[in-house]
């Protein structure tokens, strides 16, 4: 009995973590939209960009569905954590690769590329949140593998 309780506790933890990051993605996604249309909104980590806004909001929606479906459908809830973190890590990898590619491109075309651009690129919202999701991913994967997959 206690083992079962433990399992559901662990699953609840990952759904709460997903909810937390889901909200962060949502806020950044909305910010990217606001920054695009009018005024400033955390401009240092979210350049106004519709594509990026859509990406952040989509990942946010998937992650947020984890805590909201936890009571109703445990499989859906843990799947949301799993898929959401996979998406977020992929987004981070793509952004990091993009920073590398831009840097390489500037070398090829021998233009100047400031260190600041690299740092700003690596700290952009979609990369920044991805680092954290990469940290929690092993825990998500392990929990899901042990308690959901049969």
């Amino acid at each position: 009995m206690s083992g079962k309780l433990h399992a559901s506790e662990r699953l609840e933890i990952i759904s709460v973590i997903s909810g937390f990051f889901g909200s962060a993605y949502m806020i950044l996604g909305l910010c990217a939209l606001v920054a695009r249309t009018s005024g400033e909104c955390l401009t240092r980590i979210t350049p106004g960009n519709i594509g990026m806004s859509i990406l952040l909001l989509s990942i946010g929606a998937v992650l947020l569905s984890s805590p909201t479906t936890f009571r109703k459908n445990i499989i859906l809830s843990s799947a949301a954590s799993l898929v959401g973190s996979l998406l977020s890590i992929t987004a981070m990898v793509v952004q990091v690769l993009d920073v590398g590619a831009t840097w390489l491109d500037d070398i090829i075309r021998s233009q100047s590329f400031g260190r600041g651009d690299i740092v700003a690129g690596l700290l952009r919202g979609d990369a920044f949140l991805g680092y954290f999701m990469l940290l929690v991913f092993p825990f998500v994967l392990k929990t899901v593998k042990e308690h959901i997959i049969r």
């Binding site: 594509g51 859509i54 990406l55 909001l57 989509s58 990942i59 929606a61 998937v62 569905s65 459908n73 499989i75 859906l76 843990s78 799947a79 949301a80 799993l82 898929v83 998406l87 992929t90 987004a91 793509v94 993009d98 899901v144 959901i148 997959i149």
Partner: peptide, 25 residues
């Protein structure tokens, strides 16, 4: 497990948008 999200009528579409956007990037 994966399909419960990836073929979900709303979340599946969000995921598809994210995946295709990342493919393009």
């Amino acid at each position: 497990l994966l399909d419960s999200i990836l073929t979900h009528r709303f979340l599946g579409i969000f995921s598809a948008i994210a995946v295709l956007y990342m493919l393009f990037r």
